Amino acid sequence: MTDSVVFPYNPPARDEFTEIAPGVRWIQVPMPGRLDHTNVWVIDDDDGWALVDTGLSTQEVVGAWEVLIAKPPLSGPLTRVLVTHMHADHIGLAGWLTRRYGVRLWISNIEYLMCRAMISDSGQEAPADALQFYRGAGWGEVAIEDYRARFGCFGTHVYALPHSFHRLQDGMRLQIGQHAWEVIAGHGHSPEQACLYCPELKLLISGDHVLPRGSANVCVFPLEPDANPIADWFASMISLKQRVPDDVLVAPGHHDVFLGLHARIEQLLSRQQEVLERLLALLEQPRRVVDVFSALFRSRISEFDSQHLGLATGQAVANLNYLIGAGRVAKEVRDGVARYRKI
């Protein structure tokens, strides 16, 4: 138990599943890195099963699925693949599974199109706008060159998407097997994440919108440098708390299923406010983006790892853009480098 958050189930063993509600099963598929897994959800659907999220497109995850789908009830037909959002660890094998079973992908419009756009970067040169975005944040040339080398790698972990999809949108109600589910959009971590809420089962599949530990990245990227995703995140968190009661079981994209949704939302909102206050205190003097990491992160961010540096930069810019939008910070660009100061 952590601050009124309770974990009632142990995670499933590798290549096994745990039933967390009637007809709803929890599976963990492997992924590299600290998280080491993605949670996916199997829901009884008429004479077969529906799947929510898929895991990365890697040989290891394909191997895990080959074992799983040989076991009842997954040995029956897959009826559809629903994806909460477009990050590779959630959508990676959607194309493989929909083609294998001849079924439709269900996903929100923006998530599908954004995923297609990011995949289209594969094999392309890093654009000048992106290089200027990171130089303006204070990156040195070592980090810029590493970014150039890594650019366009998103598509390597996403199997070719199907060329059509069924649109999920906020407020939509859909029938999966014997139960009705409501789509609740979550904004911030991704543009239009689709959480799935079943009142009868008292179950919320939250994707990465609400995690029981840590928090999902809310970032600004070069594609939309003036975006304010934290404002969107605040609004959708408050909306989620109003629309979903506290007694639900939450099935997140990572870590363990948990009880205590409202407490967790309040904890996340409070921590985000603390980050903003620490950031404001640091901005008594003008700072570049790379100068404010200490207000956001406990560990040092290395300039020699552009992947983590990019996420840290994206989170920092998201916080700075929020404070600009709130009228509390001003931005000045000199010689191509942005500096921010408290008003």
Results as ranks from 00 to 15, higher is better:
Met1Gln: 13
Thr2His: 12
Phe7Trp: 08
Asn10Arg: 10
Phe17Ala: 14
Trp26Phe: 04
Pro30Phe: 09
Pro32Gly: 03
Val42Ala: 15
Val42Lys: 01
Asp46Trp: 01
Asp47Arg: 13
Gly48Asn: 08
Leu51Asp: 02
Val52Arg: 00
Val52Ser: 01
Thr54Asn: 07
Glu60Gln: 11
Ile69Gln: 10
Ile69Asp: 00
Pro77Lys: 09
Leu78Pro: 00
Leu82Met: 15
Val83Gly: 01
Thr84Pro: 00
Ala88His: 15
Leu93Ile: 07
Gly95Phe: 05
Thr98Glu: 06
Arg100Glu: 13
Ile107Asp: 06
Tyr112Cys: 03
Met114Ile: 10
Met114Lys: 10
Arg116Ser: 02
Gly123Asn: 07
Ala128Arg: 03
Ala130Pro: 05
Leu131His: 13
Gly136Met: 10
Gly136Thr: 06
Glu145Leu: 15
Asp146Ile: 14
Arg150Gly: 04
Thr156Val: 04
Thr156Gln: 06
Val158Pro: 09
Ala160Phe: 01
Pro162Phe: 01
His166Ala: 14
Arg167Gly: 00
Asp170Cys: 03
Gly171Trp: 11
Leu174Gln: 06
Leu174Asp: 04
Ile176Thr: 07
Gly177Ser: 05
Gly177Lys: 02
Trp181Thr: 08
Trp181Ser: 07
Val183Glu: 08
Gly186Phe: 09
Ile205Thr: 03
Ile205Glu: 01
Pro212Asp: 02
Cys219Gln: 12
Glu224Asp: 15
Pro225Lys: 01
Pro229Asp: 14
Pro229Val: 14
Ala231Asp: 15
Ala235Ser: 15
Ala235Phe: 03
Ser239Thr: 09
Gln242Val: 03
Pro252Thr: 06
Gly253Asp: 13
Gly253Lys: 13
His254Gly: 06
Val257Asp: 06
Arg264Trp: 12
Leu269Asp: 05
Ser270Phe: 12
Leu276Cys: 07
Arg278Pro: 07
Ala281Ile: 00
Glu284Ile: 11
Val289Asn: 02
Asp291Glu: 15
Phe293Leu: 06
Phe293Ser: 02
Leu296His: 11
Ser299Glu: 14
Phe304Arg: 10
Asn319Phe: 12
Asn319Tyr: 05
Leu320Met: 09
Leu320His: 07
Ala326Tyr: 01
Val333Tyr: 04
